[in-house]
Write a protein that binds this DNA or RNA. Structure first.
Lengths: 169, 169
DNA sequence: GGTCCGAGTCTAGCGCTGCTAGCAAGCCTA
DNA sequence: TAGGCTTGCTAGCAGCGCTAGACTCGGACC
C-alpha cells in the first residue's frame, strides 16, 4: 500500500479496511500510526541485512564484495522506496547506533563493517562504515527525490567505491 | 516556527494567525502549503550558497577549502534543520540537476564543483561533486535523525575528506 | 453624485486525518 | 448460572489543507 501510493496515503482508516477490522483494533495492537510504520521498518531491516549478506558473500575480492554490497543497498532503496523511507527517513521511535538497536538493524550495519574490514587499513572501522553508509544513504535519498542525474548512477557508485579503496592508508 | 517545532506543526491556520491575516489570504499568495515550503527552501538555497562561498574562499589550499566547505554544509544543516529539511528532504516542486533549477541552488552546487576542481584529477568533476554532496547529505540527515554517534562527527568528516583527496588519480 | 468593478479579506464549512470514549457481544472461569 | 475479561464495534473529537461565497472599500466612469 505504501509502495503503491506513498506513506501519506496510508491512513489508519484505509489500513483498517484492508485488514478487515475496524480502526480501533489497530490501536489495540499498535500504540500509534508511527508504531505501525516502525514495525514495518524493523521488518525491513531484516530483509536488508539478508540482501547485503547475500551480496557480500557472493564475491571473493574485498573490493568486489564492497561494490556488490553498495549496489545491493542502492537497489534495495530503489526498488522498495516506501520501505526504505520508513526505515531511514521517517521519524520512527527506534534506537540507532547503540546496543538497544533492533538486531536486524545491527546485522545490516555489520555487513558494512565486515565487508570493509579488509579495506579499512588504519582507519577506524565503525566510523568508516558510518561514512560509507551515509554516502549511500545520501545517494539513495537524493536519487529518490530526482535530485541526481539518473544516467550517471553507475559513475557515482564507481567514484564512491574507488575513493573508499584509495583512502586505505 | 518550523525551526522551533518542525514543519508538521506549521499549519496554515497557525501561519495565518502569525502573519495576522486569515487563512484564505495565504492561498491568494501561494498555491498550496507545499508552495510556501518551496518558497522558504529556495530562499534557503541562497543562504547556503553564500555560506559555502564564504567557506571556500577563506582558505588557499584546495584541501583546506574542501574541508571548510564540507564543514559549512554540515553546520548549515545542523543549525537550521527545518530549513535544510525543506530544501532537501520534503518533496517540493523544484527542479534539480538541470538548467531549470533555481539559480541559488545551482550556485550552491557550483561551490562544490569549484572547490573540487583542483582535486578531481581524472575524475568527472560534476559526478564527483554529486558524490560528495550526497555523502554530506547522508551524514546530515542521518545525524539529524540521531542515527550516527554524535561524538564521532569530526572523525567521519575527516575520513570523508581524506578519501576524496586520496581518490585523485 | 451615483454606479459599477475589482481587489482584498472574511466567515463558514467540506472532507479528510489520527486517535479515543464508551458500549456490546462472546468466551472463560468460578 | 454469574461474573469478569477479551475483543470488537459505532460514534465522535479536535485538528488538518483547502475553498465557496459573501462582504467591504477604493478608484473609474457616466
Amino acid at each position: 500500500m505504501a509502495e503503491a501510493e506513498g506513506w501519506e496515503s496510508v491512513t489508519t482508516r484505509r489500513l483498517a479496511e484492508r485488514v478487515e477490522y475496524s480502526q480501533p483494533v489497530l490501536y489495540s495492537h499498535f500504540k500509534s500510526k508511527g508504531a505501525i510504520v516502525a514495525a514495518v521498518a524493523i521488518d525491513g531491516f531484516g530483509d536488508m541485512a539478508y540482501e547485503l549478506y547475500d551480496a557480500r558473500i557472493s564475491h571473493e575480492s574485498p573490493e568486489e564484495s564492497l561494490r556488490a554490497v553498495a549496489d545491493a543497498y542502492l537497489r534495495f532503496a530503489g526498488e522498495r522506496p516506501a520501505l526504505y523511507d520508513a526505515m531511514f527517513v521517517q521519524r520512527i521511535d527506534v534506537s540507532f547506533g547503540s546496543g538497544e538497536s533492533p538486531a536486524n538493524l545491527q546485522a545490516a550495519f555489520n555487513e558494512f563493517v565486515t565487508v570493509l574490514r579488509p579495506l579499512a587499513g588504519e582507519r577506524d572501522l565503525e566510523s568508516l562504515a558510518e561514512v560509507i553508509w551515509s554516502s549511500l544513504h545520501g545517494i539513495a535519498t537524493l536519487s529518490a527525490g530526482n535530485r541526481l542525474r539518473p544516467e550517471l548512477h553507475q559513475v557515482r557508485l564507481d567514484l564512491l567505491i574507488d575513493q573508499v579503496v584509495a583512502g586505505r592508508t
